[in-house]
Design a protein around this nucleic acid. Sequence first.
DNA 1: GCATTGACGAAGG
DNA 2: CCCTTCGCCAATG
Length: 130
Amino acid sequence: MKKVAKSKKIKEKIPVKDKSKEYSFFQDVWSVARQIPKGRVTSYGAIANYLGTKLSARMVGWAMNGASLAKPKVPAQRVVNRNGMLSGKMHFETATRMQELLEKEGIRVENDKVTDFQKLFWDPLKELGL
DNA sequence: GCATTGACGAAGG
DNA sequence: CCCTTCGCCAATG
């Protein structure tokens, strides 16, 4: 994979558990996130599950923390928690940025959560493989 | 190097 | 049904 964008906040350091692996967990997460179809959403747990670390959904969230540093941009707004809630909206440029992006794609957001989340849910395991 | 935290999630009370 | 605890793993203090 390409090198990750240089960051001043997180330096250029990318968490890599095993150097023998050419990818980092971050990049994998971003990779999956970019494949989320427009107008669809998924959850941190689903991505974690796809990466084989479903018990580490928190790491996905952590990875998304650096999503804003990724290039091309990662549609982090399409990634919500298992409840369909925009748990990460506060990490966007503005508190309303995430919702705006989602509504722009035709996703209805109500009270900080995606309506019809279950219907719009996009499971990488089901859609990409398996 | 231990303790706390976190864009999560499942299980238990 | 709401709240607490625990697990997961990496970063941060």
